[in-house]
Design a protein around this nucleic acid. Structure first.
Lengths: 187, 187
DNA sequence: TTCAGAGTGTGATATTTAGCACAAATTTTT
DNA sequence: AAAAATTTGTGCTAAATATCACACTCTGAA
């Protein structure tokens, strides 16, 4: 059976088994339990995580104490504070497990090393970065263009599983509406 | 005097004069007048533009006919429909000149070619892509966290020149509020 | 099983914002 | 210089959303 990470990378770039083993040697596995965190505000994100199993949120608090979800993470997604990781600067956000999680991570140093050692991975991450940017652009488009109700429907359509796994108030926070308003959107 | 594009690229990667000349040979200059367009919805963005002089907007229309500004472009910025350019797919957006413009552009093919021929430029664009993604992430953060008034103040602080160059209704559209609401934010 | 905490739905009200109308100011075109 | 078009501010009203309050459900721990 093919390793899920190999499968994931091969959606973009074909790999020999040896190449994949080499890549994998730059990663470590880690297990985290529900409510544990991967990153806290003020820390420097020195790892990028690939989610084998589980569900996570990246979020931050407004001065008022209101929580805003920036991103959810589920199986086969990457998660980190991208800004902190790239710039090696202090993070503005937190990342927590919503469920028990199995994660593969690569450190900043290992990723730099791997990028230099293996041009295929430089291309892989370049492409990932491009697609990530496109996804963010479309989220902005949606925030500008669509009503709350429309954003709710689009999210439900795109990630139906998310609604079974995470509390609605987190969905509300991701969409940028209050939980009460979200609760009333269906009626 | 150093070419402004050389100066721009050297903020990320140092270049010899020969290297820069080689890079520049992949670009063409084009002049456009106010109200002319660079890209229309449905076309494929086959060029990426670097703005030597002038001001532009990338935007799209809601079904209702409401205009939403995705991005402004001014001197030393790049502009294109990133999604369409990267995927070579049909664009959802339009790009118009708000002022008379002088632009340098590189075609998709030339950029691919240059990326392969010159590893420094692969790194340059990878870095650009990363920073672009971070900027978009921060815009989402701001859309979730800040009130209209706060977003207005932040934009004014970051790009004061923009407010002298483009009509307020376009600023409103960029911030995601109606022009009437924007007009009332200061009082 | 029981109990505490988290999650959820809904009424009432306050706040924010949009949308329309119109007049004044400014810019562009002829 | 005059005319036309665009931009801007502001009063008014309607719609969307936030906020507070409270009851009910569900889940996990003791």
């Amino acid at each position: 059976m093919k390793h899920p990470l190999k499968q994931h990378i091969e959606e973009i770039i074909k790999l020999t088994d040896e190449e994949f083993e080499f890549i994998l040697s730059h990663f470590e596995t880690i297990y985290k339990r529900k409510h544990q965190y991967l990153l806290q505000k003020g820390e420097i994100a020195d790892k990028e995580y690939w989610i084998v199993k589980g569900c996570l949120k990246s979020y931050f608090f407004e001065e008022s104490g209101k929580e805003h979800i920036l991103q959810f993470g589920m199986e086969n997604w990457w998660i980190t504070d991208y800004e902190s990781f790239v710039k090696q600067s202090k993070s503005k956000i937190n990342i927590d497990c919503i469920e028990d999680c199995e994660l593969l991570y690569i450190t900043f140093e290992n990723r730099e090393k791997l990028t230099k050692e293996m041009h295929k991975m430089e291309r892989f991450w370049a492409k990932k970065s491009k697609f990530g940017r496109i996804a963010l652009q479309n989220r902005i488009l949606s925030l500008l263009k669509n009503s709350s109700k429309e954003r709710y429907d689009l999210l439900l359509e795109q990630y139906p599983k998310l609604f079974q796994r995470v509390p609605k108030k987190l969905i509300a926070s991701y969409l940028g509406v209050s939980r009460e308003t979200l609760s009333r959107l269906n009626s």
